[in-house]
Simulated assay, not measured.
Amino acid sequence: MAADLRIECRDAASAYPEVARLEPVVYTPEKMAHVAWHEVEWAHAERWVLGWLDERLVSCAGIHRRKIALDGTPRAIAGIGGVMTHPDHQCRGYSTQVLDEANAAIAADIAPAFSLIFVEPHNVDFYAHRGWGVFEGETIVEERGRRRPFPYMGVMLRDGTEVAPERGTIDMLGKPW
């Protein structure tokens, strides 16, 4: 069934109105009331990979790029955030197709040192099976104008032009995605 998915990669301005309609369906108020990260200020994606069934957006992932500091050394990285699939269409391979396209776009267009994704504990295995490794170090983010460790989600990394680190300190030098 996943073969029916039409994939597009769009800039944030043209994609976000569609993503904004999907978000409250995936992250309902009831669900958001029970997640530790419900008040986090997230960075906005530069581009979105959108997965469509006919004219209905059913899955998406945002693409980010950022200069960060890894143990104090500057690195140019990419990331994926805002991965969502409509509840009626989950477990059909749509997220995997969207992620594969996002990873391909990152490799071709950005060529980062490595890629980063923030992951809830119940999704670690899903991303591990798709080439992401758990980062065991500390991640610093900016929230509401101050820098601090990010305790709400784990971080997973994917190799880019460099082998992704397993430990250390990543300073995002901005908001999480």
Rank of each mutant, 00 (worst) to 15 (best):
C91L: 14
C91I: 13
R92C: 14
R92G: 09
G93M: 12
G93H: 13
G93F: 07
G93A: 09
Y94R: 13
Y94F: 15
Q97N: 07
L99H: 02
L99R: 03
L99Q: 06
L99E: 06
L99K: 03
L99W: 01
E101D: 02
N103D: 11
A104D: 15
A105V: 14
I106Y: 12
I106P: 11
A107N: 09
D109I: 03
I110V: 15
A111I: 04
A113E: 06
A113N: 12
F114A: 03
F114C: 07
S115F: 08
I117Q: 12
I117A: 13
I117R: 09
F118H: 14
F118K: 13
V119A: 11
E120P: 02
P121T: 07
H122M: 12
N123D: 05
D125E: 15
D125F: 02
F126H: 05
Y127M: 06
A128E: 12
H129I: 01
H129Q: 13
R130M: 04
G131P: 08
G131S: 03
G131D: 10
G131I: 04
W132V: 08
G133L: 12
V134L: 15
F135C: 10
F135Y: 14
E136D: 14
G137R: 15
E138V: 12
T139W: 01
I140R: 00
E143L: 06
E143T: 02
E143S: 06
R144D: 11
R144P: 05
R144F: 09
R144I: 02
G145C: 02
G145Q: 00
R148M: 09
P149L: 00
P149I: 00
P149A: 01
P149R: 00
F150Q: 05
P151D: 00
Y152C: 04
Y152E: 03
Y152I: 02
Y152L: 07
Y152T: 04
